[in-house]
Design a protein around this nucleic acid. Structure first.
Length: 470
RNA sequence: GGCCCGUUCGUCUAUCGGUUAGGACACCUGGUUUUCAACCAGGUAAGAGGGGUUCGACUCCCCUACGGGCUGCCA
């Protein structure tokens, strides 16, 4: 065992509960999880619910469900940012006391008027509060917001693990409000306070926050707090290169579950989307934790490729443990609103999974291939199956059943019998397999005939053949 | 408008000044086969454009084009 690192890694995922868990958010959470878990650190979850208008408990529940399905477990309790608003206000007042913030009595109307005037004059509106250096003696007895006293000259440098060194000129940033005039904190303050209080060492998040990082770093500086390691990752784009949105299809993590992608495959695909370690393509989460690092993250936005997602899922389907797969299959059926398996179907499924999983990429595909074990007699035939069961074929099946009656039910025993029948009728095995397939499954595209016979057993096989031969 | 970030096969990417620019998915061809799939073998396919720096640039610098983000008393 390696020694416990001096400063354990603490990462977090901090979504706003305004909707389902977006696939991009799921990937951000995954990166944080992988990074922390691979280093014996902690992965925390915080819900940024300070926007009371848009936050809903339903959205929080959906986000938790999505993370759980993806297999991303977090440490400790879920933190509500809203619940910490008093702490945020406290810090705002500490900044006031330290002289790194000031009371601003400008009204929103005044600011809005300033902005429209500047824009009308063709200038970029950076609002500079007249109260920044005002003598407290001149303060009116009126509501005020607390603004950060940001440096007006020089530059703020973000040392980003993904983007490299990013330099922002301080003159382009105004004094942002940290506490609104109604006493509620603003997001930019809340994140910093929460990340600091929660001991977050690495902030891994979407690069839409890259510019924000400069202002947040100013808050860390204003409080003399240790700045975390930044890692701003590019957002995921749709197949057309545009920001991933509804018109590209599924954007919610739970939609992918309902479409039948196995979670392990989803994790693998999402890990490889915008991150690479040499030629590694297919790996388990344990392996991913060992390999994952910040330097392997690409700087350009990656596009979603469903074909590759499917392929990756196919590998994981084949690698999966049968019992675990059956369990996940059940969860899929429930999430997709499909009927659950009966006891009989479950039993057959359990014994068939060892070969079904090798060629299926998704759960719907698995169910498609398992159709033969799902149906009950009398089974119905589709058009092609019915065509395959012509008079000649039925005659052959009829001669086959007596020989199966007392046969030991192993492939070693069945193979010679079927080959014999084929030979006696002067046909190749392929010609015999077609009607067999039709009789056993009611369709012409099925798993191997031996696999099917072994799965449903002798009695059921003979019964289905007799039904078809009649 | 300003600022910030990005740009290698169709897609995800490797390369960290010297390679026949590698792998994976997809696609095409062939093989295997008991249908579909899976599997095996092979193939097509890339450094956005233009300037520099250098003996040498995908790699470093600049410009352009294109894409994205930020620019709120939203998060």
């Amino acid at each position: 065992m390696s020694a416990v690192p001096a400063s354990p890694v603490v990462t977090r995922f901090a979504p706003s509960p305004t909707g389902y868990l977006h696939i991009g958010g799921g990937r951000t959470a995954l990166f944080n999880w992988l990074y922390a878990r691979g280093r014996g650190g902690k992965f925390l979850l915080r819900i940024e619910d300070t926007d009371r208008e848009r936050s809903t408990p339903e959205a929080t529940a959906a986000i938790l469900r999505g993370l759980t399905w993806l297999g991303l477990d977090w440490d400790g309790e879920v933190v509500s940012q809203f619940a910490r608003k008093d702490r945020h206000a406290e810090v705002a007042h500490q900044m006031l006391a330290r002289g790194t913030a000031y009371k601003c009595f400008s009204t929103q109307d005044e600011i809005a008027a300033f902005r429209t005037a500047e824009e009308a004059a063709g200038r970029y509106p950076v609002f500079l509060s007249p109260w920044r250096d005002a003598d407290p003696a001149t303060h009116p007895d009126a509501p005020f917001a607390i603004r950060m006293k940001a440096p007006r000259t020089g530059e703020t440098i973000i040392e980003d693990q993904v983007q490299g060194r990013v330099t922002i000129k301080n003159e382009t940033l105004d004094d942002m409000i940290v506490l609104r005039s109604d006493g509620t904190p603003v997001y930019m303050l809340a994140v910093v306070v929460d990340d600091h209080d929660m001991g977050v060492t690495h902030v891994i998040r979407g690069d839409d926050h890259l510019n924000n990082a400069a202002r947040q770093q100013m808050v860390y500086d204003a409080m003399s707090w240790q700045v975390p390691v930044w890692a701003h990752i590019p957002l995921i784009h749709g197949p057309d290169g545009k920001k991933l949105s509804k018109r590209h299809g599924a954007t919610g993590v739970e939609e992918y579950q309902a479409m039948g992608y196995p979670a392990a495959g989803m994790r693998n695909y999402l890990t490889r989307l915008g991150w690479a370690q040499g030629d590694a393509e297919i790996f388990t989460s344990d392996e991913a934790m060992k390999m994952f690092d910040l330097t392997g993250i690409g700087r350009a936005p990656a596009r979603l490729d469903f074909k590759k997602l499917e392929n990756t899922c196919g590998h994981h389907m084949a690698m999966a443990d049968d019992a675990a797969l059956l369990h996940e299959l059940r969860a899929y059926l429930a999430s997709a609103g499909r009927p659950e398996l009966t006891d009989g179907q479950s039993a057959r499924m359990q014994s068939a999974l060892c070969f079904l999983k090798k060629s299926a990429k998704t759960f719907p595909e698995l169910m498609e291939k398992a159709e033969f074990l799902l149906v009950e007699r009398p089974i119905s035939f589709d058009q092609k199956a019915a065509d395959a069961l012509d008079t000649v074929s039925r005659g052959i099946l009829k001669s086959l059943t007596p020989r199966l009656q007392n046969a030991s039910w192993t492939k070693e025993v069945l193979e010679p019998i079927l080959n014999e029948i084929a030979a006696e009728n002067g046909i190749g095995f392929g010609k015999l397999a077609a009607p067999l397939r039709a009789a056993l499954a009611g369709r012409t595209v099925t798993p191997s005939v031996y696999d099917m016979m072994l799965t449903i057993g002798r009695e059921e096989t003979v019964a289905r053949l007799s039904d078809a031969a009649a």
